[in-house]
Structures are given as C-alpha cells and as structure tokens.
C-alpha cells in the first residue's frame, strides 16, 4: 500500500509561489533604481512593481488560521473537520 509518485492530485488554480513573486519584484526595483529606463518604461515598470507587491502582500495577509483533521469516508473521499472536534488519533 504505497503512495505513487506520479499521481499528484488536482489542486485549486496554482498561483505563482511567493518567493518567485518577490524575486521578480526585486529585479524590477533594481532596474528602476538604475535610472536608465526611458520615461514610459519606468512608469510601466513601476506599475508592474506595485501589482507584484500587492499580490505578495495578499499572500502574507491570509489571516485565517485553519487546522483541520482529515478523515477517510467510507466511499474513499476525504472529509475535513476542524481539529478539536475529534480526539481519537486512529
């Protein structure tokens, strides 16, 4: 009864990971600080930077702490319950 490495289950739409967003933002900032961009490009770059910073901030702000206990239902599906309601550890 082993778990197969190939079969990764479907997830909700995978957003870009946090560290990649921040890496892109850092690159933009360095470019902007270089001062060599033409005016329109620098405005574009700034706008993009604001967008990235906002997205990153959103990921950090997910404030809802959730701890859920997973259980296997009879039909094989997964059931999640907030931890604390169940106390048997199987």
């Amino acid at each position: 009864m082993t778990v197969s490495r190939e079969k990764k289950p479907p997830q909700e739409a995978v957003a870009e990971p946090y560290d990649q967003i921040v890496e892109r933002l850092e690159k933009l900032v360095v470019e902007l600080e270089g001062g060599k961009l033409p005016l329109e490009k620098s405005l574009e770059t700034f706008a993009e930077g604001v967008k990235l910073a906002r997205e990153a901030g959103r990921k950090l702000d997910e404030a809802e702490r959730r701890v859920e206990l997973l259980l296997r239902a009879e039909d094989g599906s997964v059931v999640a319950r907030p931890l604390g309601e169940e106390d048997d550890g199987a």
């Binding site: 702000d61 997910e62 702490r65 959730r66 701890v67 859920e68 997973l70 550890g89 199987a90």
Partner: peptide
C-alpha cells in the same frame, strides 16, 4: 506564520 493552514491526518 499565524495564517498557516495545517491538515492533520491521525495515525498510530
């Protein structure tokens, strides 16, 4: 990380 989401699967 206060907002972290944790899923617990119980076992022995």
């Amino acid at each position: 990380f206060p907002g972290a989401r944790v899923l617990v699967a119980g076992c022995r």
